[in-house]
Write a protein that binds this DNA or RNA. Structure first.
Lengths: 210, 210
DNA sequence: TAGATTGTTAATCGATTAACAATC
DNA sequence: TAGATTGTTAATCGATTAACAATC
């Protein structure tokens, strides 16, 4: 386990590994990089190299000890503490994210949603929705660090600026636009429309090939 | 405009360009790659190279003609015809995708959702939800080609197999797992939990840096 | 031992960036 | 003309893969 710069791609593969290793039956003691690679459709050398970066090492002939590997990856990803977050833009996507319970496992605790539409009070599962005007005060009081932006494209930059003014350090951006932020703010873009377009184009290419 | 293999990364940047160019005021006649790059936080040479692949070319000193560029990118992405799709797994994420209206712009027309839970009848906006048992017949009758998979991890591979058996060619997979599919089926993975983890790790790295 | 595996070093590949010529 | 821009060719960079030595 070396401590150097970790490429983002690797960072995104780690949860996949973790998820896979955890999904193995309890009885599994050992798991080799080769097996994992085959199951996940990746190169075995890449898996081995990735694991070398985060784990305390495997055993020749046996592979990695399942339990240790889980502990190592979890330790590396350091997910124990939940980070509080808010969702800005309580449209369909925003409400879905508010209500989705799965993010807790990845260390995200979404406290509330914010929207321009003041008639919204809470999501169907009861998460509160406040007017955007209350954002700054709420974020400062609760020391919120992460904002999930799910507003329409046109409002995204302004919303982002507002969030940063409210003290946010990290933005998970679902608007299909590049946000300009100060150097110390981290942005992760999620562009579903672009993914979808890529899928359709691949489908079309496949078609032409046959 | 050359016709060769188009890397997926470029494919995912094109909608971003298109979106940006479309967002410019009507009065804008020309737009240079340099301007676009600055606005989008990308390298200008990359933008120019990307555009060279899909457009009929710009004019020295002026840049690209806005209208032509829109037409070229749209023409290249070829989004006119909507592809019909189904969502399998009508949990929160599934319902959000079912109800989200924005995918039409990217050429996706989601007809219906499917779920194991037979008590679900339709989403809050009225999209129908059918039992999974009806999937195959529905897909074949409507010539569905794209399945959006939003079931829990454990059920994802089985669901995917089912969809392929029903004649699907393309899978938009939201389950954090690698799906095994025949060679002629296209898969686009969307792993929100992994993105989120990457965001949190970057935030942490940022912290240590200051 | 023989076979399976790790982990490292070198090679390859692909994508991004730099440099620059062309030209309006 | 001078400046801004395109578009191409070469260089760089980073990530993946191949080859292989080590070893249990």
């Amino acid at each position: 386990m070396e401590s150097e710069r970790i490429p983002k791609k690797l960072l995104m593969r780690l949860p996949v590994y973790l998820n896979y290793v955890k999904s193995l039956p309890e009885s599994t003691q050992n798991i080799s990089a080769t097996q994992m690679a085959k199951a996940l459709g990746l190169g075995d050398v890449m898996v081995r190299k990735d694991l070398a970066k985060v784990s305390s090492g495997g055993r020749r002939k046996l592979g990695y000890i399942r339990e240790n590997l889980i502990a190592d990856i979890e330790g590396f990803l350091d997910v124990p503490v939940c980070t509080d977050a808010v969702v800005i833009g309580a449209g369909r996507m925003g409400q879905a994210l508010l209500d989705y319970e799965g993010f807790g496992k990845s260390g995200l605790n979404i406290l509330a949603g914010f929207d321009l539409n003041e008639t919204l009070q809470h999501t169907s599962s009861g998460k509160p929705i406040y007017p955007v005007a209350a954002l700054k005060e709420f974020c400062q009081r609760n020391h919120i660090r992460i904002a999930v932006i799910t507003v329409p494209v046109g409002a995204a930059q302004a919303t982002c600026d507002l969030a940063i003014e409210a003290g946010i350090d990290a933005v998970w951006n679902f608007a299909p636009i590049h946000l300009r932020v100060p150097g110390d703010v981290v942005v992760q873009n999620e562009n579903l429309a672009a993914s979808l377009t890529a899928l359709r184009m691949q489908l079309q290419a496949e078609e032409r090939r046959t």
